[in-house]
Every structure is written in structure tokens, then in C-alpha cells.
Simulated scan of single mutants.
Amino acid sequence: MFVVLIVVALLVLWTWRTWPRLGHLIYDASIALEARLYRLDKITMPIAEMGMVTYQAGPDTPDRTILMLHGFSADKSIWLRFAKHFVDDCRVIIPDLAGHGETGFKAGGGYNIPVQAERMIQLLDVCGIGKVHLIGNSMGGYIAAWLAATHPGRVASLTLLDAAGLPSPEPSDMGRMLEAGRNPFLVNSAADFRQLYGMTMASPPWVPRIVLAAIAERYQERREELAEIFDDFHASEPMTARLSAILAPTLVVWGRKDRLLHVSSAQLWANGIPGARLEILEGIGHMPMVERPRDMAALYREFLERPRR
């Protein structure tokens, strides 16, 4: 019995000491496995300032290339379960935006929206792509909208999922926190991360606690980097005066329960972009492609097949 107690104590001690590290291993391995299962290859593309790490898959179809842009503090992996529905008949490109994921962060590297958008033009040039179907979530939606307004010849269609870039008629939970001087993305503890995670999605997919602990640790380690990126992109020119310059067929999608960017912003996008189509998703939060990847993929494919003319 004494030996059993010692073994149990050692196991508890090992688990406690390796908990976040083990979570990192599980998380990274599961993401790599999913990418492999969905036939998405990791490819580093050399642009002017950096090597931009991407997932890429699908046939080389010039008129069916989709560029998927993640939001602030996220990375390319959030698109995996959505992207798998398009790799058979579309070329799919999913970058880690500058300062995020495996592309990495450089202090003073420039993370405002115009600079991020120009990096996407460089990425398209390196990939040999003329026109692209753009889909972006949150900050990625802001970048996508900026691209569509400033480089209309490069955008075949635009889809915005809970996009940043416009003032909100009604304050979100995050908006009230920012007004009070607190940014929920700047995580100091596991408790802070749990609060942030609860704000990002209304019905998140199941994730083991050990993996959530690892992600929380990464947020804490990147706190200063995220602060610089947030300040840069948050100070960018709003899209308000540029919406009428977006000529591509546009789909605006918003989760009714979004706590980061209030659903009242959706109508501003739809009203400002000529001919835009608006879809409000009930029971969904800030990340429709993560919360309901199959349903969101079906909606997006229907939009691609019958775009507004």
C-alpha cells in the first residue's frame, strides 16, 4: 500500500510540474494531425519582411482561390475544420498573420491594418494569384475589407465574419471593458484566460482542460507582444468612409451572441457596402467558423456559387 501511495504521489507531482508543457504537446500534435487529415500542407512563403507561415491545399484553380484571415491573437489553425470543406475543389491559403502563430513577432514590426493588408498583397504575388475570394474573422475581417476597398482588382468576393473595423452602435462586453481601461486579451492569469475564452464563443468546441491551461500560458507569455499588436490595429483608420469603395460581392455574417463585437455593427457593414448580403446566426458568438464549421461552410459555399452581381 505504501508503494502505491508513493507512485500516486509521484504521478501527481509529475502531472503538476508538466501540466502546461504536456498541454502544449497535446495541442500542437492535435493541430498537426488535423492539418494532415485535411490535406493542408504547412508552407513558408517569403515576403518582403519575413517568412509567412501558411497552410495551403487544393487544386491550382485561379478562379477558385480562397484566402482565410484569422483574428487578433488567433492563428491559422482556427480555420482547419472550416477549410476542410473546400480543399477538394478550391485552392485554400491560410496564413499566420504577422505577429501571430508561427510567423512570429517583431517589436516595432508594424501591425496596423493598411500594413497588414499590403502584406497580403505580397503573399498573393508570391503565390502567383491575381484575384482571390477573401474571408476574414474579426481583425482578419478588417484586413479583408481594407483589401477589398483599396485593391478591388484583387478581390473576387468578400466575406466578413464578425469583423472589426467599424464603431458599434451598441457596446459589447469587450467594449465596456476597454472603456473601463481593461483589455481582456491581455491575460495575467489562468482566470483571466477563462474569462476571455468564455467571451470568444457562445458554443465552443470541447477542449481538454490541460490544453486550455497551455493556451492560457501562451497568452500570458505573449502579453507584451499582443499589447503592441492590439494598439497598432486598434488605432487604424475605421472603414466607415471606405465601405462604398468595396465593389466585390459581399457576405456579412455575425453571431447574435457575440460578446467581443456587438451584433449591431453588422447592419452598418451591410448598409455601407453596395449590395451586401447580411446573415445573423442565432446562438453563435464571435467565431462562427469554429463554433459551427459545417453550417458556416455550407453558407459560404452557397454564397460562392451564387454571388451577388
Score class of each variant (00 low, 15 high):
L5P: 01
L10K: 05
T15Y: 15
W16Y: 09
R17I: 03
H24Q: 13
I31F: 06
L33A: 15
Y38D: 10
L40Q: 05
T44W: 13
I47R: 05
G51F: 05
Q56M: 11
P59E: 14
P59I: 13
D60Y: 03
T61C: 05
D63K: 01
L67S: 07
F82P: 00
K84W: 00
I94S: 07
P95M: 01
G99Q: 04
E102Y: 02
A107V: 14
E118F: 03
R119K: 13
D125R: 09
D125G: 13
I135W: 01
I135M: 15
N137H: 09
S138M: 08
G141Y: 11
W146I: 08
A149L: 04
H151D: 05
P152L: 02
P152N: 11
G153P: 14
A156G: 14
G165S: 10
D173E: 15
M174K: 01
G175Q: 04
G175A: 09
E179T: 15
G181T: 11
S189V: 12
A202P: 03
P204C: 08
P208K: 08
A216T: 10
Q220R: 15
R223F: 12
E224Q: 12
E225L: 09
E228S: 01
P238H: 09
P238C: 12
A248F: 03
V252Q: 07
R259H: 12
H262F: 04
Q267M: 08
W269V: 09
W269E: 00
P274S: 08
A276E: 11
L278N: 02
H286P: 00
R292C: 09
D295R: 13
A297M: 07
L299C: 06
L299K: 11
E305W: 03
